[in-house]
């Protein structure tokens, strides 16, 4: 992995972490979800810094270029996160539907009185 790529990756990740922190401070993201992103960022920084070690594992899996292995891991993590996000969205959707129905029925009830 070239030094340039390492520097670019680490700067980007650090900036991202700062952004997540700022959002967390302003209550624009819940602690639960910010934790996931801090963890992902941390893993990414580790993987970038210890790319020699990653190279050994990559070789073990038969992947020649280390960065490809890192990308593979990152994509895997992202897919898992997105899956749980869609599960969360479905749950939220059900809750909104429930609320909308109850609000509409309550509005109807108060009108009748």
């Amino acid at each position: 992995m070239s030094l340039r790529l390492i520097i670019i990756l680490i700067t980007t990740i650090t900036l991202f972490m700062v952004y997540v922190y700022l959002r967390l401070r302003n209550n624009k993201i819940s602690t639960k979800y910010s934790l996931i992103w801090f963890l992902v960022s941390f893993i990414m920084i580790l993987a970038t810094l210890k790319h020699d070690f990653m190279g050994i594992i990559a070789n073990f899996f038969g992947i020649e270029v280390t960065s490809n292995f890192i990308f593979l891991i990152i994509i895997g993590i992202l897919l898992i996160i997105i899956f749980f996000m869609s599960a969360t969205v479905s749950k939220l959707n059900d809750k909104t539907t429930f609320l909308a129905q109850e609000v509409a029925i309550l509005k109807n009830k108060s009108k009748e009185k």
Partner: peptide, 18 residues
């Protein structure tokens, strides 16, 4: 009964059942 936003046919009918 006036739903606050569009829920789709299923959500609307279910409101009736509720």
């Amino acid at each position: 009964i006036d739903l606050p936003f569009n829920l789709g046919i299923g959500g609307a009918v279910q409101t009736g059942y509720k």
